[in-house]
Amino acid sequence: MDDFLLVVAAFLILNVGAGLIRVARGPSPADRMLAAQLFGTTGVAILLVLAQATHTPGLRDVALVFALLAVVVSVAFVKRGWVRAARSLEEESDGEAGP
């Protein structure tokens, strides 16, 4: 069982690696920030699997922190990362879509 779970964990890590292609390509900053969502969910899964496979319950606490960090990182990005562009846009059309 433990070996099987280690293989699954490795597979999930490969998955995150493949997802990084999207982060590298973009094109928009939000596309790159999808990494937060990817690491959030897949990271939690990897840590839960590893906690079971290696009998390290502490890893579940790390999983919890991962889920929280995904939100914090995204809020930071939305508030700061795009802040310059957002400021100039807000003046003409607050919240409106369109280029």
Binding site: S93, D94, G95, E96, A97, G98
Partner: peptide, 9 residues
């Protein structure tokens, strides 16, 4: 209340 949400998108 918000015209951006009225759906011209």
């Amino acid at each position: 209340a918000d015209p951006a949400l009225s759906g011209n998108g």
